[in-house]
Design a protein around this nucleic acid. Structure first.
Lengths: 338, 338
DNA sequence: AGGCCCTTTGGGATCGATCCCATTCTTAGT
DNA sequence: ACTAAGAATGGGATCGATCCCAAAGGGCCT
């Protein structure tokens, strides 16, 4: 049957002819063990194929050796998929070499949120990574009162009180708009993300900033609010065209919205980039395959994932570390659309 | 501050004026509790904001109330990203309503594999979901000998001994090829996935099957092996064009490879679909944005995720259930490329 | 030789739940 | 009225590790 109870630390101790404590010491790399004892223990471990019970260990140490990555389901669905895959890869990368496991928690609705709150209150993880937080997100506050180490990818607002990592959304957006200006565009609209998120606001700020720097007054009617979906991009583009038939440049705050905008532009017979130049954001897989391929602002998503993980591990290792903020640079990838 | 030790079952018992066992009974919904006792316990739980320690519970029940989703890192990187996002969503969906947590494990290299093996031997999860298994994957075998409940998305071969869920790759591919035949194409090549995977083989079989059914002998030189990457698709397409300048139809076993093929076709001045008609597989986000948009075989990825999860939960609930196999249907989404 | 310190060791208590079993209190049956 | 069966309850043991602390053994100094 292969049955045979899993060996415990006691079995190992008996086999090695030492006490449980000595085995535990070897397991945890304590220097207070003689070489012979250590050798005997290691041999016994190997022979018995012993693996310590992390559950029993957790009970006494009250560490779980796991962290949670919390992703709002709504966000994961809407086209921003590649973003999450990349973050996940980065996180997993940051965890490589540690013994720490990653729990993935997609929050889909109110019930999911409630059971997550219970989960966190039970301290079933040592720390939490939060992705794509909204301004009024209840989770960051809860985590602060629980005093559970937390790091955000992105931030609620520029005054974020939790440790966080974000890319230079303002700078990236500004660069995109400067690029459009550099191509001689005069009337540059923008399709924003949700404005209850810092990404949405920051990219909008970048658009404003670049225009102001160029001596132009940002016309508020050149702003159309989107929601990061393709359909949202389409609708926003339609609104912009209605308001400004003379539009010759658009900065969309995501590639997926840019793809929607592209379709709408085509429907209206505008050529891209000849009539209207278009820049997206994310440099996602869609950017390479649209027609024409999208010029887009790349953000180092995988690195964001890696960085939030490293910061979280730090914070777990030494509680009460001061809040840290990291901003990672973006870069403009020029393709056919602008 | 806010300190205050977390309350334990003992605290609750004292507060409710009952014994620990009674509290435990209430927690686990045992009928052997009087209504008054139950009410008192529930009140105490609410007042103390008590959440049971899952760690302590695990220690005695030897359940972890968590499952692992194992994804080979190599696969997650290569364009198949949307596939994994969708599987993850499906899994998370299948888990909703249970108290079971999802551990995500990306295996990137040999070291990762070793630490995964240790992790599994320690039985740190109640069951495992395996995605995109290769023919010689060591993991399924290990899981079988560990007698750890396991369900695969996809299969190693048509004789798969573990419970698994896969989409109708043969049928989907055959439908794609029939579609090409229906458009009057005579010389239809195929760009395959890796042939050490069942998906690769099955989609190739579908191509063969459709040709044979149409009374055509499948010409082996019409087969070019790819690896699911865009670059692989490009190279395979080049090889096919060299061998068969008269090629007028191509079935690619993934959209990403089809996108690569598309670029290569354009480079050779072939118009799609006029000169060469092209069908992809996956109906991923890229399919909608290529020029022309790709006709593609859709597989219900999210449902695959949901189904493997349900099967795994079943298997965990009642060990020793017989192996189950589920095949989900595909459907052809016709767009501009064929 | 005796005392002291340092290294190494292991048994007992502990973490916070569940499970086994003995005990008390009802209620019904003859 | 006495017993038997059943409902409800709670204390002790247990899961498998770590941590505290007492104690044994060895070397060196005076």
């Amino acid at each position: 049957m292969g049955g045979n109870q899993r060996p415990t630390i006691k079995t190992v101790a008996a086999r090695a002819g030492v006490g449980r404590t000595t085995v535990s010491r070897v397991l945890n790399g304590s220097p207070l063990v003689s070489d012979e004892a250590r050798a005997a223990v290691l041999a016994a471990i190997a022979e018995l194929n012993y693996v310590p019970s992390s559950v029993a260990r957790s009970l006494v140490t009250s560490r779980t050796d796991s962290i949670a990555l919390v992703i709002p389901e709504s966000e994961s669905r809407l086209g921003s998929e590649p973003y999450f895959s990349a973050v996940i890869r980065g996180v997993s990368d940051g965890l490589a070499g540690t013994q720490i496991q990653l729990l993935l928690i997609l929050v889909r609705d109110q019930r999911g949120l409630e059971s997550l709150e219970e989960f966190l209150t039970a301290r079933r993880v040592d720390g939490v990574l939060l992705v794509s937080v909204h301004r009024d997100d209840p989770l960051p506050g809860l985590l602060e009162t629980l005093e559970l180490p937390t790091v955000l990818a992105g931030r609620r607002s520029p005054e974020e009180s939790l440790t966080h990592v974000h890319s230079d959304n303002v700078g990236g957006a500004a660069e995109a708009v400067r690029h459009l200006l550099g191509r001689g565009r005069k009337t540059i609209g923008t399709i924003t993300g949700p404005l209850d998120m810092d990404v949405g606001n920051s990219r909008l700020s970048g658009w404003r900033e670049a225009l102001v720097d160029a001596g132009l007054a940002p016309d508020e009617t050149l702003i159309a609010t989107g929601d990061f979906t393709e359909e949202g991009g389409r609708l926003a583009m339609r609104a912009l065209l209605e308001r400004h038939p003379d539009l010759d440049g658009v900065f969309a705050a995501s590639d997926v919205m840019a793809a929607g905008a592209l379709a709408e532009l085509r429907r209206h017979g505008r050529r891209v980039p000849d009539d209207v130049a278009l820049v997206g954001f994310d440099d996602s897989i869609v950017a390479r395959h649209t027609d024409p391929p999208l010029t887009s602002v790349r953000q180092p998503v995988e690195e964001i994932g890696r960085t939030i993980t490293e910061l979280l591990l730090q914070e777990i290792a030494q509680r009460g570390t001061a809040r840290q903020r990291v901003m990672l640079p973006t870069s403009l990838i020029v393709r056919g659309s602008a």
